[in-house]
Design a protein around this nucleic acid. Structure first.
Length: 208
DNA sequence: TGCCAGGCCCTCTTTAGGGCCTT
């Protein structure tokens, strides 16, 4: 397995929680290897339940668009194949993790890799941003424009560029050599405004 | 009919409340 590879994912869905019946309507996965985007996957899928009108307006994904799309289980088979064993990354990972875990359990492919959250990492590294919405961070950090927000591929690509920026920031600001998932998971688990103290401690710890 | 989540994180806090984020 190639080292230093992350699978950045984004779901569009019919609602906020699978625990209350919401299901995915679109997924995109962007592979980031050695700080570069190397591959992309995207697919609409048929949630087989109505998409609320306000969410159709938000995402631009309509009932007609998903009617002829493949079933969720077919798409999730392809998505898990594409993501492989690589650490998953999402903006506000708590949201995407719920859908990923619900739909991969349904196809008997439970998640084995950690989930990294670019929202939590951005709060640690860019505390002075106006806010930490994905669109605001793209503007504030001058990241490449990737297309229409609230579509899966555009948002996954934006999150991929944000991940690359986070990796570069960590390397430069703290003179670190490699930014692996273990370091990112540790950083997102510490409290806000504790980065400097954490890095000092990290330098004294044996590496994973 | 209308509403539904939940983890993080701040503060006028910790015996709590509310904004931020995702769709």
């Amino acid at each position: 397995m190639p080292l230093n590879t992350f699978a950045v994912i984004d779901f569009e869905t019919t609602g906020l929680s699978p625990d209350h019946g919401a299901r995915p309507t679109e997924i995109a996965i962007v592979l980031v290897r050695n700080h570069k985007i190397v591959d992309r996957y995207q697919s609409l899928m048929n949630p087989e339940i109505p998409i609320p009108a306000d969410i159709q307006a938000l995402t631009g994904i309509t009932q007609a668009m998903v009617r002829s799309a493949p079933r969720i289980n077919v798409v999730m088979q392809q998505a898990t194949d594409f993501a492989g064993p690589y650490p998953l990354v999402a903006h506000n990972a708590a949201f995407d993790r719920k859908f990923w875990d619900a739909e991969t359990r349904a196809i008997h492919r439970p998640r084995v890799q950690p989930f990294v959250c670019s929202l939590l990492l951005s709060r640690r590294l860019f505390p002075d941003a106006p806010n930490h919405r994905l669109g605001t961070l793209v503007q504030t950090l001058h990241l490449p424009q990737t297309g229409q927000f609230h579509r899966a591929l555009a948002d996954a690509e934006a999150t991929a560029y944000l991940l690359i920026r986070i990796q570069n920031e960590l390397k430069q600001r703290y003179a670190l050599e490699t930014i692996n998932e273990n370091l990112l998971c540790r950083i997102q688990a510490i409290g806000r405004n504790k980065m400097d103290a954490f890095i000092q401690e990290y330098r004294r710890l044996p590496r994973d």
